[in-house]
Design a protein around this nucleic acid. Sequence first.
DNA 1: GAGTTTGAAACT
DNA 2: CAGTTTCAAACTC
Length: 742
Amino acid sequence: MDVVSPELNSLLPDEIMDTEAIIMDDDPPAESPAASGQSQPSDDSPVPMEMDVPAVPEIVSLCSDAPPTQLTQAGTTSTPTGSTLCSTTSATQLLLTSSTVSSSSLTLRPKLSAPFTLSANHQIILNKVASSPGADTTRSQGTTTTTTTPGGQQFMVTAIGKSGQPIVLQLPHTGSKSASVQGLGEAKANPQHFKVVTVSSASQVSTLQAQQLKTVQIAKKTQVSSAGPIKFVFTKAVNNKGLTAQTSVSNVITGRVLSTSSPVTPPRTITLSETLGSSSKIAISPLKSPSKLTVVSVASQVPNSPQKSVSLPLNMAHLGHQILLQQSTATSPAKVVSTHSTTMKPVQTVTVGGVGATQFKTIFPLSTPSNVQQIQVPGSRFHYVRLVTATTGSSTGHAGSPITNSSMTAKPMVVNTTQVRMSVPIVPAQTMKQVVPKPLTSSGQVLTTQTQQRLIMPATSLPQIQPNLTNLPPGTVLAPAPGSGNMGYAVLPAQYVTQLQQSAYVTLASSSGFSTPTGIQTQARLPLNGYCDCFANGEFCQNCNCTNCFNNLEHETDRAKAIKACLDRNPEAFKPKIGKGKEGESDRRHSKGCNCKRSGCLKNYCECYEAKIMCSSTCKCVGCKNFEESPERKTLMHLADAAEVRVQQQTAAKTKLSSQISDLLTRTTPAITSGGGRMPYTFVTKEVAEVTCECLLEQAEQAELNQQPQATAERMILEEFGRCLMRIISSAGKTDCPSINC
DNA sequence: GAGTTTGAAACT
DNA sequence: CAGTTTCAAACTC
């Protein structure tokens, strides 16, 4: 799987789309063994697509600036001429026209209605002409166009959104293939595929939208392919409004050119290649390479900014003060290969493993410790840290304003004027600890967190992911940000942060299924099951003794799969077992009830007893003694209460004694410092100590003779010890050898 | 600390 | 849904 730079993504239509939803039903039924070996399992790769590298690149262009030269078709069937048509959503209209097509043909899908322009030389020009800014961004269905090129290459273009930005998609030439029109049936016979899925949003622009990413997958398969499968994953920035004429990227992949353009500029070519020299380019493995390269480019704050990748050596300076969010499907996991660049600014990367099919990855730099502010949230178990970006005078705009940045330099840029508010709870309130943010380091900034920490990140600025918030990892909580307008927080398990701490700049979303075709992940048993409390609690394993643990950031994808599997089995798997009872029941109760058979529900084996709640009708226990009137239970409760009281008494006695000693030392200090007094060891002589012990033993003997309870005996001893101390203190300044009598 | 007991969760 | 297996925590010695 290859990744295109966010620049390209930024030029694609906006709206996130589930790539699974656009799997063509006429995909080739089978793949060659070689191809299968390189491709991911079907369950892992929803859109397994392979691409062959033709000797001559075939170019398919999806562009906007090229005005439709031919009549727009809203065809519902394939046409002999190859002109096709696509379906559009209410707000998105695409023109698909066949213009001067000499050697290309299109196979239209009945439901498609998007306007396209099919140009000569294997170019498909997708032009979005009717963009509705007010369109519903949550629309899930978009425009889909399927075309079949002369060489049997089939293209499926799904454009959802209303960015109004045209797409120019160019594919390598297939050579001197005939320009015959192919229908759907032929498309099946020729398993060459090209899929474009654009995701977008565009109607909303917020401070953080620029970091939101979209995923586009493109793949093509050639029947006679001898090369390995190639997969593209385009991670597209959401904020397209910031696009300007300066938008220009040049990511070139060998033999292929992907071109995009904005409405205001001529089509620009985005090349995917190994031109790594420029910070604005993302290198992708050679097309012929049988190995898969999974790269996800992460958009920078500026949608059209060329420096937007965490995957390859490129300048990350622009990532300063940003939150980069990527959404991808677990079934088509995108592996982010983090490669340091000498110019890369320390960036903190947080991967939010999604539940189910969605994963969120957040990358943000934590600038300096001064940007961290502790937040006290009344009633909250957590303490938060607010990460606030520095606002500078050079800020270019405000929230919602498109930010333009065409700079290709590696200089850190302050383009975000609004505060990026990220609150990270530090520690549970019960175990509050002072966290000192670590300074920036070359390897990335580390944020110290605790087990129960939660990461809070702005949520409302990520509209396209909100529909998938239900897929957030266990422990994720959505919370409004008081006083922040419509700004909200997604409270995420902070283990993601601590995981980052362990590997400041680590490979994110390391989808072993994707990155390691050999299936290494299957060699070790995944401790991602209900047996692991950490996993069951929706937390990463940390400081536990797991072996071959996959419940960590490095195995995010596997973890997400396991979570999904658990949820498939039991949707309540990650919900607390102890909750409120039925309506009208105020007491807590076990959601499922226990199933004890031998413990009588009076041992900690019983989850009800362990939770200090009585068994209910939900329980299936045998010989239950954990009910209100149970004498056994009452006895246990009394014993437990007595033990607790005893502990409290002992604690109080120790505290009192400590206080007395401390007071003694305090009183003697002035004398010591003045030189007029004596040090304690000068008057607490051996004799005094022995006499004191005798007094204490005497108290113990008396208590024993009187058959006093142990607690009483201890109290008598402690009280005697206090008296002894007082006598010592009072005698210290009087005589050289204080006399102590019991 | 090692071995046993126990019950939840996974598995069949 | 029931029986079995696996696992880790609770418990005992």
